[in-house]
Amino acid sequence: MASVTGTQSAAKRRAILDAAIEAFLESGYAASVDDIAATAGVGKQTVYRHFGDKQALFLAALAGAREGVEDGAASTVADTGDPLRDLTRRGERILGMALSPTLAALHRLTIAEMTNHPELGRHWGDTAAPYLEEDLTGYLRRCAEAGTLDVPDPARAARQFAYLLITEGRVASAYGTRPLSAARRRTIARDTADLIVRAHRR
């Protein structure tokens, strides 16, 4: 019985999160908890029992949306021995995730609400996809070990690559309001990869 109860509780939580993501994307932070509960097919108190308050619900919805997009981008990029090519391919994958309609919209919403709710900004920064950083850091460390690049601090270089890449992608796409073609994303990824490779070339 405990297992069934746990499964039902998890299903309700997922339904609430799905409804919350939809509501926040449509109405912003002003979305009604009553409407979210109705869409999820639960009572308002059930929402609060799972998430405590509206801000916690928003943060959980934000994390849930990111996980959904990130899971689809989590495939491993094989090493070819060519840092420019390998970083470009990784960059294309990261841009595809960061500029996805759902994450771009949630990013804009987070920026709009940060003045009144600073926790949202801290949460956005704290929940960066760890596998992306680990993948980039690991790749750059392997390049250093193989002697193809001189990278004294792989974690720092990985952050620089990711931040330069995502920032240019967001600016070029007007923060996700103007779709970028695959060719444009590839160019941004290659240009950013080229900067990193040039900076760490032996």
Rank of each mutant, 00 (worst) to 15 (best):
A162M: 05
F161K: 00
A183R: 13
G176I: 12
E168T: 13
I166F: 03
P179D: 03
R159C: 05
I166W: 02
Q160Y: 00
R170M: 14
G169R: 03
A183N: 08
L180Q: 10
A174L: 14
A158P: 05
P154D: 03
A172V: 11
R185D: 07
L180V: 15
R156N: 08
L165V: 04
L164R: 01
A174R: 06
R184L: 13
A182F: 08
S173D: 05
L164C: 05
A174N: 08
A157Q: 00
T167N: 07
T177R: 13
A182H: 06
R156H: 10
R170A: 13
G169C: 07
Y175S: 11
R185I: 12
A183K: 09
I166G: 01
A157Y: 00
R184H: 14
R156D: 09
T187Y: 11
P179M: 06
R186V: 10
S173T: 12
R185N: 10
I166Q: 03
A174Y: 07
S181M: 13
S181R: 08
A172D: 13
S173K: 04
Y175W: 15
F161M: 02
A158T: 01
L164A: 04
R184V: 15
I166V: 15
L164V: 05
G169F: 06
A157P: 01
G169T: 11
E168W: 09
A172C: 09
G176T: 11
R170Y: 14
A157W: 00
G169H: 04
L165Q: 01
Y175H: 12
R185W: 08
E168Y: 07
R178N: 03
L164P: 00
A174S: 11
A162R: 06
T177G: 08
F161Y: 03
P154L: 02
L164M: 10
A157L: 02
V171R: 07
R186M: 06
S181F: 13
A162T: 06
R185F: 06
E168G: 03
T167Q: 07
A182K: 04
P179R: 05
A183Y: 05
S173Q: 08
A155N: 07
R178M: 08
R170H: 12
R186A: 15
Y163W: 09
F161I: 01
Y163N: 03
I166E: 06
P154S: 05
Y163K: 02
R184D: 15
R185H: 10
R185P: 04
G169W: 04
V171K: 09
I166S: 02
S181A: 14
F161Q: 00
A174E: 14
R156G: 02
G176H: 10
S181W: 12
P179Y: 02
G169Q: 06
A157S: 12
G169P: 12
L180N: 09
A172G: 02
